[in-house]
Design a protein around this nucleic acid. Structure first.
Length: 259
DNA sequence: ATGGTAGACCTTCTA
């Protein structure tokens, strides 16, 4: 079972790139983030013709998450619990009805910049909501994969130039602690678990030739419940996709599970 | 100290 996550930075601007990657990587299940379109403008047919079942949680202009799956998607959840007026489309979850079923989420965590503003407070509040929901899912004792753009640089080695991220919301002690708290619940960081290669980054800014200079950060994560982590076989970043024409600023991350 | 690029979309916001 090949599962993947990719922040595509506009699904319609990226369609050609995305279809090409799907054809070569052939993930069974993939979560997309930053669709930047409402449900009705999501190019569903392009993916259905490749044999995918599709669930979308879109939004005009910003955010938006989707799940593509070769197996039926059931028990779909749109948005985290405790929304309390939060209308950003950042979380989509479903049960993948494969021979060995598992739960899969595509999540797009708030960026949170600049720090010291309501945006950073929103990031931390959203992370607290994710923490509670992640804990509830663990209690089911099922295979779960929480995949997406966490907008958190967990450790200094997850950045090419960590010092340049010191004032950034992605590298604040509070952001990193909240990410670790989710991990300490019992989730496994798939890429770290398989022994990530140095410079295993997933994002390179469009500015200043960041990709060519490998000024990247690792912020897209596949987090696995114990029942899923037990079956982890491989995890890698498809960094070459970032070097193509009209690329997203993120590269896909894909894990292989014995499921 | 702040601009660089990309995408959506209407002029500026988000990242």
């Amino acid at each position: 079972m090949k599962i993947a996550t990719w922040n595509v930075n506009s699904i319609n601007a990226r369609l050609e790139n995305v279809v090409a990657w799907l054809r070569e990587a052939e993930p069974d299940v993939v979560g997309f983030q930053e669709l930047k379109c409402p449900d009705e403008k999501f190019p569903r047919e392009a993916f259905e013709s490749l044999g995918y079942n599709v669930e979308v949680h879109g939004q005009k202009s910003y955010n938006g998450v989707a799940i593509l799956s070769k197996f039926p998607l059931e028990d779909v959840r749109r948005g985290l619990p405790e929304a309390d007026g939060d209308d950003h489309a950042r979380y989509l979850e479903a049960v993948v009805a494969a021979p060995s079923p598992f739960r899969f989420a595509s999540l797009y965590l708030p960026n949170g910049n600049p720090i010291g503003t309501e945006k950073f407070a929103y990031k931390l509040k959203w992370m607290a909501r994710l923490y509670h929901h992640a804990a509830d899912l663990l209690a089911l004792e099922e295979p779960v994969a929480l995949c997406g753009d966490y907008n958190v640089i967990p450790e200094p080695e997850d950045a090419d130039k960590p010092e340049s991220w010191t004032p950034d919301a992605l590298f604040q002690p509070e952001s990193r602690a909240a990410w670790r708290a989710i991990k300490w619940l019992g989730y496994t960081d798939a890429q770290a678990e398989v022994g990530r290669e140095p410079h295993g980054y997933t994002f390179w800014d469009y500015f200043r030739n960041a990709y060519e200079r490998d000024h990247g950060i690792r912020i897209d994560h596949i987090m696995l419940s114990p029942q899923a982590a037990d079956r982890l076989r491989a995890c890698e970043v498809h960094r070459h996709v970032r070097g193509r024409d009209k690329p997203s600023d993120h590269a896909p991350v894909m894990a292989e599970l014995d499921l």
